[in-house]
Design a protein around this nucleic acid. Structure first.
Length: 185
DNA sequence: ACCGATCCACAAA
DNA sequence: TTTGTGGATCGGT
């Protein structure tokens, strides 16, 4: 319900060479240090870490977007961090995402957006949903490349066997997010 | 050609 | 019952 306003600008990887203006900030949240980066178009990165120092953050963002002109500007991202992990966020501002993806990644990530809050699905089910029933593993790879934590809810995907499955930002964090969502139902 | 946020069947303990 | 192992699978680099 909170994802009513989520517009996504998809960009093919072939355009990855172009340089961009990019600002970012680190913010303390319930789930660790949240790194948020955005372009003029929208949020292009949203990742969670146990701890992320300012220098690490800068290096990390620069490594992810080698051609971009980046600038630490937390005042521009703090509002996003605040509205994200809050039950009572009423009238959340519509957010815009700016993501670069392959065709499969776009299919998979769009499927992720349809998993309701508090629910989970499996890598296998996602594979079936996009018409590639044998590609569970490739789907897992695509899920694992999601650069927008929480808003594109990759944490809601578990193994067919019921095991938790992997997580780019650590299994603990995946577990935390799921527990939190189950709780505030 | 190699690597994965997978899955399944089947063997061994 | 539980744990381990090997093979199938397939997109990304």
């Amino acid at each position: 319900m909170e994802s009513t306003g989520l517009r996504i600008h998809w960009q093919p990887p072939s355009e990855s060479a172009q340089s961009e203006q990019l600002i970012y900030g680190i913010h303390r949240t319930l789930f660790g240090d949240c790194l948020i980066a955005k372009t003029a178009i929208g949020i292009c990165q949203l990742e969670l870490f146990d701890r992320l120092s300012p220098t690490e953050a800068r290096q990390y963002v620069q490594a992810t977007w080698p051609k971009a002109d980046i600038e630490d500007q937390p005042t521009a991202t703090i509002a996003i961090a605040q509205q994200l992990f809050c039950h009572a966020a009423k009238d959340p501002d519509p957010l815009c995402l700016h993501v670069r993806s392959t065709v499969l990644q776009q299919q998979v990530w769009q499927s992720l957006l349809q998993i309701p809050r508090g629910a989970t699905t499996t890598y296998q089910a996602l594979a079936v949903a996009i018409g590639r029933p044998k590609a569970a593993r490739a789907v897992g790879n695509a899920v694992g490349k999601n650069p927008i934590a929480y808003l594109i809810p990759c944490h809601r995907v578990v193994r067919q066997s019921g095991e938790l499955g992997g997580c780019r930002w650590g299994r603990d964090r995946k577990q935390q997010l799921l527990a939190w969502e189950a709780e505030c139902f």
